[in-house]
């Protein structure tokens, strides 16, 4: 066999063996067998030394192209095997994406707190401060300075938890925070605040009554605040809470600490004023009480009623939440069933 034939036969031999290669290990073994320093391919180079220049050059070129060819073949097979192996691995790593997630839980707000936060952020953008006051309150602030002297019949409507004689009580309304806010000013200045907070009355708990409930109080005092400002403010809050289509109205009412006093009604967002179970039968739903701060209350709190006037409003947070989220039982807010609360850990819909 001449040297050309040797190359040819070796090439044939390697090609045959390469065809049988099944994995990278076999490929490596084959590479060591044929391409290592003492392997048959290297042996071919040793033939060179006996050749003259011309022949050596010719044979050298032949040998080189043979080596390149072999290397290419090896590379080709390697790439193919590697791809196969990767695909196999990917196949093995395929997962069932329909299996349940590992839950990443953010806590839910209490339903009332969620509503309060919504109202707070809306009104803070309109310049209202959010203030707080004590829940054990003086009779003086809860009643007396609000134009409800001892023996006033309107005290009956707020059956109160008294403590320690009758000087202290669990506040029956958030209105004492109005008094505290006004009294806290060194000299009279404009006020724009809301106070959401817990209040207490001697009611037996049932689906619509709760001995503990939440009021959202509002107070605006300045030199030229009018009832129409109250109407506009109520209107914008109502639309924010219940949608742009909602209409608002005032009905005359009575509170000892406001004059005039009004009930704040919204048109029924459920039936749009046609009359339904929610607003039966009138098409309007009362959501709160309000009025112009009574001149005596202003006077009691150091504001001269000839110079200052203002409005105050109060919403029942539970009532609004019940209407807005279609809740039928007020006790739900205080039982804290986590499954019911979970629903409220999301952004508001449109």
């Amino acid at each position: 066999m001449n040297k050309e034939e040797k190359i040819k036969s070796l090439s044939l031999e390697i090609s045959e063996k390469l065809e049988k290669v099944q994995d990278l290990k076999m490929l490596n073994d084959l590479k060591i067998e044929y391409l290592s320093k003492k392997g048959p391919v290297s042996e071919l180079s040793s033939l060179m030394k006996d050749l003259d220049n011309e022949e050596r050059k010719k044979f050298g070129m032949l040998l080189n192209s043979f080596k390149n060819e072999i290397n290419d073949k090896f590379d080709e097979i390697r790439t193919k095997l590697e791809t196969e192996e990767l695909n196999k691995k990917l196949e093995e790593e395929k997962i069932d994406i329909s299996l349940p997630a590992t839950p990443i839980k953010i806590g839910s707000p209490n339903i009332l707190e969620r509503l309060i936060e919504e109202i707070e952020s809306f009104l803070m953008n309109m310049g209202y401060d959010v203030v707080d006051g004590p829940e054990i309150e003086k009779d003086l602030y809860n009643f007396e300075l609000l134009n409800l002297p001892k023996g006033h019949p309107a005290r009956d409507a707020q059956d109160t938890f008294y403590l320690k004689g009758e000087e202290l009580l669990l506040r029956s309304q958030t209105s004492p925070v109005q008094v505290r806010t006004m009294l806290s000013k060194e000299k009279p200045e404009p006020i724009k605040m809301i106070c959401p907070g817990k209040t207490y009355r001697r009611d037996d708990d049932d689906a619509v009554h709760s001995h503990q409930f939440t009021q959202i109080e509002g107070l605006v005092i300045d030199k030229d605040i009018s009832l129409s400002d109250l109407k506009g403010t109520f209107d914008i809050i109502a639309k924010h809470l219940f949608g742009e289509d909602v209409q608002t109205r005032f009905r005359p009412s009575y509170y000892p600490f406001t004059e005039p006093s009004v009930e704040m009604d919204i048109s029924c967002f459920n039936c749009h004023g046609q009359g339904c179970n929610l607003c039966k039968p009138k098409g309007w739903i009362t959501v709160g009480g309000a009025g112009m701060v009574h001149p005596d209350v202003l006077k009691n709190c150091g504001y001269d009623p000839n110079e200052w006037q203002g409005f105050a409003f109060g919403f029942g947070a539970e009532r609004i939440a019940m209407l807005k989220y279609n809740i039928k039982d007020i006790r739900i807010f205080y039982t804290n069933d986590l499954r019911e609360m979970e629903v409220f850990d999301r952004k508001e819909g449109e």
Partner: peptide, 27 residues
Amino acid sequence: GRLYGYHNLENTLPKSESKPGRYVGDV
């Protein structure tokens, strides 16, 4: 007002100086 009718009220907003609201105290 009640006899004249509160439906005659316009919706206006307080014309007070505008400043951002804040949480007061430990709120």
